[in-house]
């Protein structure tokens, strides 16, 4: 019998705890495959966030640090500076990266830290039970915006790729989606590129995944994907915002 797909070496045997229809598992797998394909399993370490992916430190089969909420880029900076021969990534959600950790992500990007940041944007706080995120869409209802996000009161969602692309130092910034098999294939290429650039110590690389949260959005997984396509993609435009390796400034 021919094996055409197997568990990546860069994932441990620990079963994921994620909800049905959640896409963290897909994002984890893409990163793990990229680690395998770039032959980095023995030289890479990751930093897990606070949020739904808090247990990512159990899932990636490399050394992992669990950071305080939002601090993953600072922790990754410390690791990379202490172990410059290693390759470091962070894995963060929207509350972690775009709210409490805004300073850390902006300044690690601005320093051009030679790390990869994987940012999962599903427009909501998952782990704490569906509160408003900095990326929650206008009029979107959450447990802390029960009447819909009022942009006159609390402002608009933050577009992190666009924000970071105003900085000079970042090497590679791309927003991809996990909403369809075709999108996932495109996302895989982006993740692979980020990990390759990381391996080559090119600079700061940042991948944003547009994702879903069926549980807290209150949709079936397929409905959730459809809703995200209709509502998130118009606001969070997919594409390459910076790729110094390919001349995209």
């Amino acid at each position: 019998m021919e094996i055409i797909a197997k568990r990546p070496e860069a994932l441990t045997k620990e079963p994921f705890h994620y909800c049905p229809g959640c896409m963290h598992g897909v994002a984890h797998r893409l990163i793990a495959e990229a680690i395998d394909e770039n032959g980095l399993i023995n030289q890479i370490a990751g930093v897990a966030p606070v949020g739904c992916a808090v247990f990512a430190y159990k899932y990636f089969n490399c050394d992992m640090a669990e950071a305080a909420h939002g601090r993953a880029p600072a922790v990754a900076t410390g690791i990379k500076r202490a172990r410059p021969d290693m390759h470091i990534f962070t894995y963060q959600g929207d509350g972690d990266l775009a709210a409490i950790g805004t300073a850390e992500i902006v300044h690690s990007a601005n320093r051009g830290e030679k790390i990869s940041v994987f940012f999962v944007n599903n427009a909501i706080y998952g782990m704490t039970g569906g509160q408003m995120a900095p990326t929650t869409l206008p009029n979107m209802k959450t447990t802390t915006s029960p009447y819909g996000r009022n942009v006159d009161d609390i402002g608009y969602p933050i577009r992190m790729c666009e924000l970071l692309a105003t900085l000079v130092a970042p090497y590679y910034i791309e927003r991809v989606s996990l909403l369809s098999p075709a999108d996932i294939i495109r996302a895989k290429k982006a993740v692979n590129k980020a990990i390759r650039y990381n391996k080559e110590n090119r600079g700061f690389t940042f991948i944003e995944f547009i994702s879903t949260c069926p549980t807290n959005w209150g949709y079936e997984p397929e409905q959730a994907r459809q809703w995200a396509k209709e509502n998130m993609l118009p606001f969070f435009k997919l594409g390459v915002y910076r790729d110094k390796g390919e001349g995209v400034e």
Binding site: V47, A65, A67, A68, R71, A74, V75, A76, T77, G78, I79, K80, R81, A82, R83, A103, E104, H107
Partner: peptide, 14 residues
């Protein structure tokens, strides 16, 4: 805040 978390990362690297 960032500084002490950089310390966390570097200390975690031994």
């Amino acid at each position: 805040v960032a500084a002490i978390n950089m310390v966390y990362g570097a200390a975690g690297s031994g």
